[in-house]
Each structure stands twice: as structure tokens, then as C-alpha cells.
């Protein structure tokens, strides 16, 4: 006989949803990395006790509704403009904790200029970058981050580097800029990686509190719907294909 029922009691609780995460059911596809990263941001905000002083900047992309899930103040940016809006918010209210949350289509395609210039200016903000190698929301089109040979709805035969160029390693590029203090690449496909990614997000917020400049956390992610795989297959595919092009680890930590 199992003693499950006796174990389920408040004094044995070791993991539960943080109250900073609202009870709304997320609109994301089953297994989507966006949900996992939202949870980590909420947990960090909870642990640092900054719920009342944090302002998120939501992007355009699948995470356009991020403000429905994390119980803080938010602003919604036009596509790709989150770093510009984060700049304004942080400069007007330097006592607030400000972060942008952006996909690869948002941060590394339409918003490339805003991304690079905010990082180059060393804006004292946190940028969370969900790199799933595709435009998830609009139907899985090729993004600047799509891997060579990787199929997408606008390149069904796979990305042809001779025609489309090589995928952009935006984090490597941003790590070159003097304004960034912390650039790291993480993933959330295993429990160990989730725990590491959370530490990185926490460190980024602490950097902001220490006025160190821009911290960028890239999370190599899956878009299992766009990739046309099950969530578990997508995690495996990511491990086998994405990590060799986008290796995990810190690119800069000053």
C-alpha cells in the first residue's frame, strides 16, 4: 500500500506554483518553453521580493500575452521595440526592475536595431530572449535563427545558406558590445537545465540592481507546433541539432 496520502501534507511541501504566477491557463501549446521560462521569471521575482517594483515589456509573438500570466506591471511593445521601451521605462524610473521578454523573430529580426543599440548603450535592463529558431505565432516561418537545413513553412526544403545566409548568433554578437555585462545561453528541456536557467535569470536581475548594464539571457527553446513534433521529440531534436550551433553556457560575465 502506498502512503502517498500521508505524504501529501503542508509540512512536506517542497515545490508549488509561486503566487507571482497568476492562475490563468496559459494559451501556449502543450510543452512550449515559453511557459517554463515565465515560471522561472515569476519565481525569481518572488524570491527577490520585487513583485511591486518590476515592470515587464511584452513582445509581439506567441508571448504577446505574457502580461496575463505574471502578476507584475507590464507594457506592450510594438514588434521588436521592447528594448527601446525598456530603455524609456528604466530611464524614467531607475528604481524599478525592468526586463524585456522577446522571441527570436522579435529580438533578432524586426527588432535587431533596437536590440543592438540598447545593448551597446549598456541600458541597465534584463533581456530574456526565447530562441526557438522560428516565427511561432504566425505559422512557423524561417527566422534569422533557423538552422541550416532546418525546414520551416517558408523554406520547406530547409534553410539554404547560399540563399538565406547563415543563422545569426545574436548572443555572440551582443557579447562583443561593451554595454553588456552578462550574456548567457541556457535551455529549459531538463530539470537540471531549468534550475541553471533560473540561477542565470536571478543573476541578471541582481546585475540590474547593481547598475552593471545590460544582461541578456538567451534560452534555446522549442516550438514543437512549428517544428511539427511532440514536445518530448522537440526537446530531443533541440539537444541533437540546436546545441551544436547554439552552445549553452556563459558568453560574458563581468
Amino acid at each position: 500500500m502506498s502512503d502517498t496520502n500521508t505524504i501529501i501534507s503542508p509540512e512536506n511541501l517542497i515545490y508549488k506554483k509561486t503566487d507571482v504566477l497568476l492562475d490563468n491557463t496559459m494559451h501556449y501549446c502543450p510543452g512550449c518553453s515559453h511557459g517554463t521560462v515565465h515560471k522561472l521569471i515569476a519565481e525569481v521575482i518572488d524570491e527577490l521580493g520585487i513583485q511591486e517594483t518590476t515592470i515587464g515589456i511584452a513582445p509581439v509573438g506567441c508571448s504577446v500575452l505574457a502580461y496575463n500570466y505574471i502578476d507584475i506591471d507590464w507594457q506592450e511593445a510594438a514588434h521588436g521595440r521592447a528594448p527601446a521601451l525598456a530603455t524609456a521605462v528604466k530611464r524614467l524610473m531607475p528604481e524599478k526592475n525592468v526586463f524585456s521578454y522577446q522571441g527570436d523573430g522579435d529580438l533578432a529580426a524586426i527588432g535587431t536595431a533596437e536590440t543592438i543599440h540598447a545593448c551597446n548603450r549598456g541600458e541597465n535592463i534584463v533581456m530574456i530572449f526565447i530562441n526557438n529558431g522560428i516565427y511561432g505565432m504566425t505559422g512557423g516561418q524561417m527566422a534569422p535563427t533557423t538552422l541550416p537545413g532546418m525546414p520551416a513553412s517558408t523554406c520547406p526544403a530547409g534553410r539554404d545558406v547560399s540563399h538565406d545566409g547563415a543563422p545569426i548568433k545574436i548572443s555572440e554578437l551582443l557579447a562583443q558590445l561593451p554595454g553588456t555585462c552578462y550574456v548567457t545561453r541556457q535551455a529549459v528541456h531538463t530539470a537540471a537545465n531549468v534550475r541553471k536557467a533560473k540561477k542565470a535569470i536571478r543573476k541578471a536581475f541582481e546585475n540590474q540592481q547593481a547598475n552593471k548594464g545590460t544582461s541578456l539571457i538567451e534560452v534555446v527553446s522549442t516550438c514543437n507546433s512549428g517544428w511539427k513534433m511532440s514536445p518530448v521529440q522537440a526537446n530531443k531534436w533541440m539537444e541533437e541539432h540546436m546545441f551544436s550551433y547554439y552552445p549553452l553556457g556563459d558568453l560574458k560575465d563581468e
Partner: peptide, 29 residues
């Protein structure tokens, strides 16, 4: 659901990885 409840060691891996934060984990002292 817990198909094999006797085997749970309360490591919290499932709770930590769940994208929709649906899992609460308990561990007996």
C-alpha cells in the same frame, strides 16, 4: 497522474519542468 506512486522519491523534477506549473511536490522527512 501518478501511475506508480510507490516509486516517487520527491525529487521535484516534474514540478520544476512543467511548463504550465501543474504539479505540486511533497517529500516526507
Amino acid at each position: 497522474y501518478m501511475g506508480n506512486p510507490d516509486a516517487c522519491i520527491g525529487c521535484a523534477n516534474c514540478g520544476v519542468i512543467c511548463p504550465d506549473t501543474c504539479i505540486t511536490v511533497y517529500r516526507a522527512k
